[in-house]
Amino acid sequence: MTDDSLIDERATAAIGTVIAQSSGTVVKKEFQRWAAAVGDRNPLYFDDEFARANGYREAVMPPLYLPHVTLGVVDLDTLRPDGIPGESGTSALIPLPKCPRWMAGGDETMFFEPVYDGDPITASRTLDSVEQKHGRSGAFVLITSTTRYLRRDTVVAQSVVTTIARP
């Protein structure tokens, strides 16, 4: 590792380990608020009878809402100046003090099971890789992790997420 490396050795040491585990319960009104914020009034998410007529148990959670089910509670005095959680957020799980600016890179999720109001969800996130890259606007760090979402013993979805951290 050279002096101009942006990658902290603590981040390298975390590769291959579970860096976060969180849990939460699906709340119908919360996923419906999310859908409404997207402008997505899909009746599968809002209308129990409509959902049942299409093979679901009741109104189903929009699949892309899943990562938000297990979010924790943030204390305002622990936020970084830009509003990102300082102690409990991703930026603290993967220490990259030279790269304070974080952006979503990409995401690939496979959905195995429908998820409903009241379902207990546990998310378990493993750090796959932390790599320094060079792009048009200079050096950045590409972080890849895999999150498995479980409802009790059933994996309902699995997501590979890349995040970009810049100096």
């Binding site: 409509f50 093979g55 699949p63 892309l64 890179g105 990409g106 995401d107 690939e108 959905f111």
Partner: peptide, 13 residues
Amino acid sequence: GPSGRLVSFRTQN
């Protein structure tokens, strides 16, 4: 539509 089910979804920013 309502009979479709999203199985996999991949995006890049």
